[in-house]
């Protein structure tokens, strides 16, 4: 009965029912069982649901699934490549930049989107890229340190 849409998530094409009111977050979590993107507020205020759309960080709770049909969607599950963690994932582990970890996927996706377009961000650039992400456990200083560490790792491996 329902129309369908095609979503390209982490390089895989999925056909899902096109309910015009459905958020991308709900489709990812409830339909595709990609639960790394989290619900924290549903109003674009916490960043727990952050994914990349064509490489740009976006709040999936504020994004209609139908609006991103065919676009390239990357979730936290898609950052690991061939069993190798993204340098920012590695940096989070090295620095211990988490407590409960519920904010972590959104933080990493936001940070990875930043690093993809700016390999050497200043402190101010990191803060403004992440300002919309909440960590209630208060691990902000460690998250900043992890982004800096990842930037230097990426520079080294590019050199």
């Amino acid at each position: 009965m329902a129309r369908t849409i095609d979503l390209v998530v982490n390089g895989t094409r999925h056909t899902v029912a096109a309910d015009p009111n459905r958020t991308l977050l709900s489709v990812l979590r409830d339909e595709l069982d990609l639960t790394g993107s989290k619900y924290g507020c549903g109003e674009g205020q916490c960043g727990a649901c952050t994914v990349m759309i064509d490489g740009v960080a976006a709040r999936s709770c504020q994004t209609g699934a139908a609006a991103v049909a065919g676009r390239r969607i990357t979730t936290i599950e898609g950052l690991e490549q061939h069993g190798r963690l993204h340098p920012l994932q590695e940096a989070f582990l090295e620095i211990g930049a988490m407590q409960c970890g519920y904010c972590t996927p959104g933080m990493i996706v936001s940070g990875a989107a930043l690093l993809a377009k700016n390999s050497n961000p200043s402190e101010e650039e990191i803060v403004s890229a992440l300002e919309g992400n909440l960590c209630r456990c208060g691990t902000y200083p460690r998250i900043l340190a992890a982004v800096r560490l990842a930037a230097s790792k990426m520079k080294r491996s590019a050199a």
């Binding site: 639960t35 790394g36 936290i76 950052l79 988490m98």
Partner: peptide, 28 residues
Amino acid sequence: SVPKVHGRQIVTGAHRYASDMKRPGMLY
């Protein structure tokens, strides 16, 4: 300073919190 156990599951989004649980036939 032993690093966080299960840290890898967290940074990859693989850890299932209660809100991520799914059971066959589950309703919301």
